[in-house]
Design a protein around this nucleic acid. Structure first.
Length: 412
DNA sequence: CATCCACCGGAAATAGGGGGGC
DNA sequence: GCCCCCCTATTTCCGGTGGATG
């Protein structure tokens, strides 16, 4: 219990600071792309995926697999963990097995995905200029020259088939083994959190990719606690976590469909806040502060990355909502206000169709909530409400020099 | 019960900026 | 240099559509 009364006991405060000095021991253990040595409550899934891929150790073609489940249910961690273990075992026995992990969300287009695969096998390709087919050919040529077994993990694979040409690439990859003529093997592991994606797949792609399907259930709060405790032991210095912190992170994340990544983020950011403030321990208050900070950062990042006219549309919604006491606004209303703002800046305005598209993009980004409603005789439209901290949004909008004037009025 | 509003949202095409291979 | 490719934001075109209204 030493250290818990640091605030009221000045000597203990000095002592514990001297002893601990810092909050973190290995902060990176809590970062989203860290692959832990053990994955509590995912033993079955680990085993199943390993069974599917194990033939690679004999130099045979491993099966394809499809993993799905909500975000933060361990799909990515399981895939990466199995890949690492498989590769190291293969190295021990001198078999050529290569795992290639690609996050499709970060490499949205077919070209970038196939370029990432190329990079994964040590093939340098230009970031643009070639056709998808050309890069694909080069990859296949190199793979068949090198031989061996390649396991390609396509994480968030749904982002691939959305864009045109994505289905094509998937189809080609599922039958890549025919292009290799037995000189090498490729197996695919697809990961997604979208069930509608699974249904939208071409049957031939689906049956190939879904040879084995693993479903990941959300973690429960106690399971999340196990996960956090294990990581926390590594990540933090002993004694810096006050008692309620891990349960609180677990509870908050459990509320959001058992999202382990969310729980780890909360824990890490809470620690960062404590360290930044020079506090000797991480408390529940830091966790609540983390929740706010994570959201602010997310909003800021998303808004800053928006195209100019999307920013204007967003500003238009905020303006309208302010003058309407928070009521939701229709696409037509937004369009009129947006045109006024654009005119004020002397900019051409985009079409209504585009504004409608921007509205649904803002919805998917979680900045605005909009739903399509029918107002009967008065038409069908989308009704939008800003669904993020308005101040965080305005701050991010104000960072854009082109529209800062609109956000801050006419100062300076 | 048919009408008709006010958009919805898919598809294809364009613009225009950045790069190949040979 | 010529011809082809990629990428994002946007335009053009256009066939829907839920439900209050007359």
């Amino acid at each position: 219990m030493a250290g818990t009364r640091g605030v009221s006991d000045p000597l203990e405060d000095v002592f514990s600071k001297a002893l601990l000095r810092r909050i973190f021991r290995k902060r990176w253990v809590l970062l989203p792309d860290y692959v832990p040595d053990t994955l509590p409550h995912r033993e079955k899934e680990l085993r199943r995926l390993a069974e599917v891929l194990a033939p690679a150790l004999r130099g045979e073609k491993p099966g394809n697999a499809f993993l799905y489940g909500l975000t933060g249910t361990g799909k990515t961690a399981v895939a990466r963990h199995v890949l690492l273990r498989l590769e190291s075992r293969a190295r021990e026995i001198g078999v050529a097995v290569k795992g290639i992990y690609v996050n499709v969300r970060q490499r949205e287009t077919p070209y970038r995905v196939v370029a990432a695969i190329a990079e994964g096998i040590g093939l340098r390709v230009p970031f643009t200029g070639l056709s998808v087919g050309e890069v694909y050919e080069r990859v296949m040529k190199k793979v068949s020259r090198l031989g061996g077994v390649y396991i390609i993990v396509l994480d968030e694979i749904d982002f691939l088939s959305k864009r045109s040409g994505g289905q094509d690439l998937l189809y080609r990859l599922t039958r890549a083994n025919q292009d290799l003529g037995g000189r090498a093997w490729i197996s695919l592991v697809g990961i997604t959190n979208s069930l509608s994606f699974v249904e939208s797949l071409e049957p031939r792609v689906r049956s190939s990719l879904g040879e084995v399907e693993l479903v990941f259930q959300p973690y429960t709060a106690p399971q999340l606690r196990d996960i956090l405790e294990e990581r926390a032991r590594e990540a933090f210095n002993p004694g810096v976590l006050s008692e309620g912190v891990v349960p609180l992170c677990a509870a908050l994340a459990a509320r959001e469909h058992g999202d382990a990544r969310r729980a780890l983020d909360l824990l890490r950011v809470a620690g960062e806040i404590a360290e930044r403030r020079g506090d000797p321990m991480v408390t529940e208050e830091h966790v609540y502060a983390a929740r706010v900070e994570i959201e602010r950062d997310r909003v800021g990042e998303v808004v800053r990355g928006l195209p100019l006219h999307a920013k204007l549309v967003l500003l238009a919604i905020i303006r309208l909502q302010e003058s309407r006491g928070g009521r939701s606004v229709s696409t037509g209303e937004v369009y009129e206000e947006y045109k006024r703002l654009a005119a004020e800046l002397g900019l051409e305005h985009v079409t209504l169709r585009r504004v409608s598209g921007i509205l649904s993009e803002l919805d998917m980004l979680g900045i605005v909530r909009s739903r399509v409603v029918s107002r009967g005789r008065y038409g069908k439209t989308r009704e939008a409400v800003v669904d993020a901290d308005i101040n965080a949004v305005l701050e991010a909008l104000g960072d854009d020099p082109t529209i800062a004037r609109l956000v801050y009025g006419d100062e300076s």
